Amino acid sequence: MMPSRSESIINVDSVSSSVGGVASHAYTSSKHAVMGLMRNVATELGRYGIRVNCVSPHFILAPLTKEFFKIDESAGVRVYSNLDGGLPKSICSLKELKTLDASNCASLACIPSSIGHLASLQCLLLWGCSSLREIPDSIGKLESLAELHLTRTAVAELPRSIGNLQNLRILDICRSHITELPGAIGMLTKLLDLRALGCKNLEGLPKNMGELVSLNKLNLEKSGITSLPESISKLSSVQNLSVRYCQKLRGLSELPFGITALRITCQGPALPQLFPTNPSQETHSF
């Protein structure tokens, strides 16, 4: 190694080497030992041009981790977070990045506009980022984006540029602060799944909803919607529609004939006359 003066040594450690109180004394001590060894060796070999570094992973939902913390897949959330306020602007340099998962980063308050440079990004997971209030307009530049998850964020408005996401398949705004969806959403011709469960501030949908020709699932459970636009009848690909527990919903317009699963909540002793008259429509109510 020393003659070549261009080698690199990578040690694998744990976040427990810098965060206390999340593991046993023995485990934490052993990880501090790895970090200390790395620093010593780096000092010793640095004069020979040999780089010594350490990778300290955060929580990873692996079999040993699930057994240690006694959790299953559904409980696999981020235990640690080193994001203080926002993502670094330098993130734009990750040209090959396909998945950005910042789930449960409660301190994440902003997304840099440079995120628009991530041309390869396909999945953006911001689930549980409770301090996040705004999505930058530059998100419209993510031509490869297929999934956008904003569940349990403080985002109240989506940028109009979202209509440029021509490859978006899943839009998840469940339990967010969204008050309305921009009309540009009608441009999402490849959107398959729109999730707005628990959006209590969402009172209606854009009039051009009927332009979502590929939409298959529409979940509006526990939202604040008062009515559905008439254009919803044009959603020929919709098979699953849920408006359960929408207490402000006054009625349903004519529904798409292709629906195979309709979920509603009845406030009275009988089903109201809310359905289209087409006898061929198969309807399931819960």
Rank of each mutant, 00 (worst) to 15 (best):
M2S: 11
S4D: 10
E7V: 08
S8N: 11
I9Y: 00
I10V: 14
S17V: 05
V19S: 06
G21A: 03
G21L: 00
S24F: 06
H25C: 10
K31E: 04
L37F: 13
R39V: 01
T43M: 11
L45K: 06
R47H: 14
Y48M: 06
Y48N: 12
G49M: 09
I60K: 09
I60R: 11
A62P: 01
E67H: 08
F68I: 08
F69I: 09
K70P: 00
I71A: 05
D72F: 03
E73T: 09
S74L: 08
S74G: 07
V77G: 10
R78W: 07
V79K: 12
V79W: 14
Y80V: 14
S81Q: 07
S81H: 04
S81K: 04
S81F: 04
L83C: 07
G86K: 03
P88L: 06
S93K: 15
S93G: 06
L94M: 14
E96A: 11
L97G: 00
K98N: 07
T99F: 00
T99L: 10
T99N: 05
S103T: 06
S103K: 08
S103R: 15
L108R: 02
A109T: 02
A109R: 12
C110W: 07
P112Y: 02
S114G: 07
S114L: 07
A119T: 12
S120I: 02
Q122H: 07
Q122K: 10
C123N: 10
C123K: 13
L126S: 02
C129Q: 02
S130W: 09
S130Q: 09
S131Y: 04
R133N: 09
R133C: 11
I135F: 02
P136C: 05
P136G: 05
S138A: 14
I139V: 15
I139D: 05
G140I: 05
G140Y: 05
E143C: 11
E143M: 12
S144Y: 03
S144E: 09
A146T: 14
E147I: 07
E147V: 09
L150W: 02
T151G: 08
R152I: 07
R152A: 11
A154I: 06
A156D: 12
E157H: 11
S161N: 10
I162E: 03
G163P: 05
G163S: 07
N164C: 09
Q166G: 08
I170R: 04
L171N: 03
D172A: 03
C174V: 00
R175H: 14
T179D: 09
T179I: 12
G183Y: 01
A184Q: 11
K190R: 15
L191K: 00
L192G: 04
D193V: 08
A196F: 08
L197Q: 10
C199I: 05
C199Y: 07
K200L: 13
N201W: 06
N201D: 10
L205M: 03
P206I: 01
M209R: 01
L212M: 04
L212T: 03
L215I: 05
N216Y: 12
L220G: 06
E221D: 12
E221Q: 15
K222D: 09
S223I: 03
G224F: 03
G224I: 00
G224H: 03
T226W: 02
L228Y: 01
P229Q: 02
S231F: 01
S231V: 04
V238D: 06
R250N: 11
L255V: 04
P256G: 02
F257Y: 15
A261V: 10
C266I: 13
G268F: 13
G268P: 04
P276N: 14
T277P: 03
Q281S: 13
T283K: 11
T283L: 15
S285G: 09
